[in-house]
Design a binder for these strands. Structure first.
Lengths: 140, 140
DNA sequence: TATTGTTATACTCTATAACTATA
DNA sequence: TATAGTTATAGAGTATAACAATA
């Protein structure tokens, strides 16, 4: 059975990404969160007051798709959406959101450390700069 | 605006993967193909007679989701599904499928070369082994 | 005029269960 | 018993268009 795609970096990139995300998802779902939600909690924790659209821009999630996600986190009592600008909503975590964000942070940290350790030492430090070169939107 | 995720290899892996796949998709759609379809054409070209489920196993696509994809390629006259085993369907490309597979191959080759060239030379050769270490299903 | 948030909608991808027929 | 293919279905994720309110 020949796999002609095994030598394509783009293909292997996708497979590695899918596998990693699936694994993280199973670890984060025990906290009642999806990976995207965990990501949002982390970013809002670090950037209290950030607007929904600014958050969406960071994560490449469009305004229209951001709305139900943010509304769900608010409905669960994890996040508040406070009118800041008149048209903008500033996001901040509730105490419960802060607590959950910290738990998610611990899970993600552990996972990322494991991921890194799976890479043979001689290649380890090269992964991040290589990936960043393939991710165009790293101007911010 | 602080992005606390920028130092997570898993996160950057996902962003790089998404960006690369989106770019490839725009190049391959002009052939009337999705990336997965192009992938299938390439694999069937290299492995004529491969069964639907074996193909699905290679690509991590479940049997149930493989059915409509293969049926669509057959309906477009790109692929044939021949009963081989009694319960299995052996896949092979039609001449038109072969032709399109070659065009797709050229697009993918060019894209993958460009991808590789975007990586700074000192990191370039490390990407593939690092990614393979993160992709568990590389036993075949 | 441009931006923010919202609603509605559609399409893709993925996951599961249940069924048949074959090995 | 296990495998191959199918059907139906549901859940995510993503994309676009249109609208009201505000800058």
């Amino acid at each position: 059975m020949r796999d002609p795609l095994l030598h394509y970096p783009g293909y292997v990139l996708r497979r590695a990404s899918t596998a990693a995300m699936a694994e993280l998802a199973t670890r984060i779902v025990v906290l009642g969160l999806r990976t995207t939600e965990a990501t949002i909690l982390q970013i809002v924790a670090e950037n209290p007051g950030i607007s929904q659209s600014a958050l969406g821009r960071m994560l490449d999630i469009q305004r229209a798709n951001m709305t139900p996600i943010a509304a769900r986190l608010e409905a669960r009592g994890l996040m508040r959406r406070l009118p800041s600008d008149g048209r903008s909503l500033g996001l901040e975590l509730t105490p419960e959101g802060q607590q959950l964000a910290e738990k998610a942070q611990a899970v993600v940290d552990a996972f990322e450390t494991e991921l890194t350790n799976r890479i043979p030492p001689e290649h380890r430090d090269h992964l991040m700069p290589a990936l960043l070169a393939l991710w165009p939107s790293t101007d911010g």
